[in-house]
Simulated assay, not measured.
Amino acid sequence: MRESIRKARRLVVKVGSALVTNNGAGLDLEAIASWARQIARLREEGREIVLVSSGAIAAGMQRLGWHSRPHETDALQAAAAVGQMGLAQAYEGAFAEHGLVTAQILLTHADLADRLRYLNARSTLATLLELGVVPIINENDTVVTDEIKFGDNDTLGALVANLIEAEALIILTDQKGLYTADPRKDPAATLISEGRAEDTQYEAMAGGAGTGISRGGMITKIRAAQRAARSGAHTLIASGRETDPLLRLAAGESLGTLLYASSTPLAARKQWMADHLQLAGSFTLDAGAAKALGQGASLLPIGVTSVDGEFERGAVIACRNTAGIEIARGLSNYSSSEARRIARHASSDIESLLGYMEEPELIHRDNLILR
């Protein structure tokens, strides 16, 4: 599987806060310069690179003289606003040394939850890559709230990998990779060189965040690998403190942990639906409808027993069985108020109930993904 990394043409590279800020001591300009040099080399090989970088809050904390991460949202946003200036400046200067232009992109989950904004972000990134620009992406911590935050940049890296259909996601961290147990607590823990991203045993092996500056931890990296695998992207987790880790990983060297994708990539629209961290509402289905979905059918209104939430046409909706378990999600052809009026009715009744009929299905099977 390492050979597939060597052949990959489009990569997403994610670097964590502990690396960018040298464990909170301030921006590590030497490390940033090293990543810029390595990415420039990969660009010379004909590869396209998108960089997802943490570090704005940590950099802002250092600039403001704070020694511990605050808990208040407004304080975190203020730190991000201060730190993002220095972070962008550092990257711009480092890449300019190699004749490369960078672009700063700040995202929230709302940017990828909305279908139109998702497509706009996808088009913008594609254009930047065509122009030879290195996009540098971070979560927009300056305006983020609990409702829209990704929660960690490992998740953001996976979402970006799916967004641009990258072949691999490289996560550089302050650990050497995934171990059989937390190496900080178990001296007998051994490094896992390679495994299937969808293998659920890895979640149990993952420990917590490595530093007070980091927000994720190994568990978020495992889940990011699972998410990236949905679009066929392999994930590499390795230490950013190794010598030239990007060059060595891209060359196929057995460094860190490779969690490879074994499932068939989803269509772009279904990737987008699968990547939703938040949903607009849900349909509860009767047993017959739940069974029909599992067999590849569309969701018809007659099979819906209840509608939860308030949403508009085109929203991503969860489909739940009678036990409340999500079995699918998809794009609703009707708003919540319309769905409530036609639920438990045959498709032939839609026009008489609403005065019009958009589609005979609540969710068409082409806009539906099983969970």
Rank of each mutant, 00 (worst) to 15 (best):
E351T: 13
A346V: 06
Q271W: 07
T264S: 11
A323R: 10
A59L: 03
E72P: 00
L169C: 13
I39F: 03
A59S: 15
D146E: 15
A343I: 00
A292H: 01
E242Q: 14
N367A: 09
A18Q: 09
T243F: 13
Q38S: 09
Q295H: 14
E3W: 00
L156C: 09
L370S: 11
G24S: 08
G217K: 09
G132V: 01
K270T: 00
S347I: 03
V50I: 15
T257D: 12
S239P: 07
L112V: 13
L119T: 07
I170A: 13
R37F: 04
R223W: 02
G216F: 07
T220D: 08
E198A: 14
T220Q: 11
G99S: 13
P265K: 11
I222Y: 04
R227Y: 00
E165R: 05
I39H: 07
L249Q: 01
R6Y: 05
R2M: 07
R248K: 15
L277W: 01
Q38Y: 08
A94K: 07
S336N: 09
G65V: 08
I237V: 14
T21C: 12
G46N: 09
R230V: 04
M357F: 00
L258C: 12
A126T: 02
R184L: 14
A343L: 04
Q77E: 08
V12D: 08
T102V: 15
L247N: 08
R196G: 00
Y91I: 06
S352Q: 14
Y118V: 04
E203H: 03
R340Q: 13
S68E: 12
D199S: 10
A94Q: 05
G256E: 05
A297Y: 03
A224H: 09
L368R: 08
R41E: 13
V307T: 08
G60F: 01
G212F: 01
L42Q: 05
Y260N: 11
L258F: 06
A25R: 13
H67V: 11
A328P: 12
A261M: 08
V101E: 12
D154N: 11
A103G: 14
G240V: 07
R341W: 00
R329K: 15
Y260G: 05
I237H: 04
E361R: 04
S53T: 15
R184I: 04
M357I: 13
D146Q: 12
S254V: 06
D286E: 06
L300N: 10
D111C: 05
G24P: 12
N367T: 03
E130C: 01
A339L: 08
V134N: 12
L277H: 05
G288I: 03
S306N: 06
G83Y: 02
D74P: 02
R227W: 04
I302G: 07
D244W: 04
R37N: 12
G24I: 01
G294M: 11
L87R: 06
G26L: 03
A315T: 03
L279Q: 07
R341Q: 14
D114K: 04
A181D: 15
A189Q: 10
L42I: 01
E351A: 15
Q104M: 06
E338I: 06
S239I: 07
A292V: 00
A343Y: 03
T108E: 01
S337T: 14
I105E: 10
R9I: 03
R341C: 09
R215T: 15
A18E: 11
L116Q: 11
A233Y: 01
M357Q: 15
T180M: 03
